[in-house]
Design a protein around this nucleic acid. Sequence first.
DNA 1: AAATATAGAGAACGTTCGTTCTCAAGACAA
DNA 2: TTGTCTTGAGAACGAACGTTCTCTATATTT
Lengths: 192, 192
Amino acid sequence: MISSEVRDRIVETADELYNARGFQAVGMDELRAAARVSLKRCYQEFPSKSAIVLAVLEHRHRAWTEGLDALVRTADTPRGRLLAIFDYLARWFCEDSFRGCGFINSFAELGAVSPEVADYARKHKESFQHYVGDLAEAAGAPSYLAPQLSILAEGAQATAAIAGSPEAAGQARRAAEVLIDTALREGVSGAA
Amino acid sequence: MISSEVRDRIVETADELYNARGFQAVGMDELRAAARVSLKRCYQEFPSKSAIVLAVLEHRHRAWTEGLDALVRTADTPRGRLLAIFDYLARWFCEDSFRGCGFINSFAELGAVSPEVADYARKHKESFQHYVGDLAEAAGAPSYLAPQLSILAEGAQATAAIAGSPEAAGQARRAAEVLIDTALREGVSGAA
DNA sequence: AAATATAGAGAACGTTCGTTCTCAAGACAA
DNA sequence: TTGTCTTGAGAACGAACGTTCTCTATATTT
């Protein structure tokens, strides 16, 4: 069997299980069984469980980033692209498997004990903030807007996860409209 | 030795250790040693580790809520009281021990596996939203403002924790000013 | 002072988990 | 066919954890 195929199956299965129940709650044997792979094969593909965790984070980052970008590209105004972020959240929060941001969760569970996990979470969030920054700059907004919208998005994720309801996405979206319109009204002067 | 004194020492020590490294990473023996209590005594005060975890959440809720309210009361305008929330966050984020919101963290680590923990986190967040709702109502703001500010506060906590820097508090505060002033300008009509 | 109860220290127990090892079955080469 | 190599299934191992038990020493009561 092709190595990369088994690898992908392990990572995707691990992503689902870890998302549903947490990293520490899912043992290697359960993962092995769900991925229909022998334990030996698991350790041929990955040197340790920690390596699988990091591969899952990488997988999450790619999936999330690509999904977001795909939806953002469907909007045809700079303002619409900024708001599309919150439409993406709204769609995501409605999925049955939604259990909060995987990076906030990984940081909470393992960040204090694994510098690599903490680093990966930080890099993911930085990448998101940078992405929002590009969209905001393209909209001609002052530079303070992007962190504000990023914080709104993070808060919506945490709130929706804990409340178990998706309404935070809409609330954050309406707040984002106010922040965007105010920032655009104040003009590029803040950034220039 | 007085029971409640030992109890408090266990809970406070557990709070610090769990906050610093996570619930699952801190074993009963380490907690026992740090609290200078025998293992037997631990199990006389609490029936299980899970019970300690819940007691820690209760302790966190009280400490956080009281600390917030104390600062909010020092502000002398309704608008100032709403903004004081973010000053409280700013102060908190600068503490060395800050490792993110203990309830977001507990939900991420144990929420999927312990309904009691998930419930407690949800109740804490509901209580916070209710508190913000009261402040917003007293300020004469439309009812949509409170969830927006709550989401900002949650986002600031998550962002500051992962980034490891306190600047999110100030960014969230400036966003809050815009949201508050816009909401107040639009008037009570939205709530009436 | 003797008898009893209590507390602390930490050994012990049972379980779980990550990781490695064993062994038997099958694939392939010569 | 024979020998070699790989693979999967799962037993085994060592560590860690939550919890309980043992034992000894001290306190308390009469």
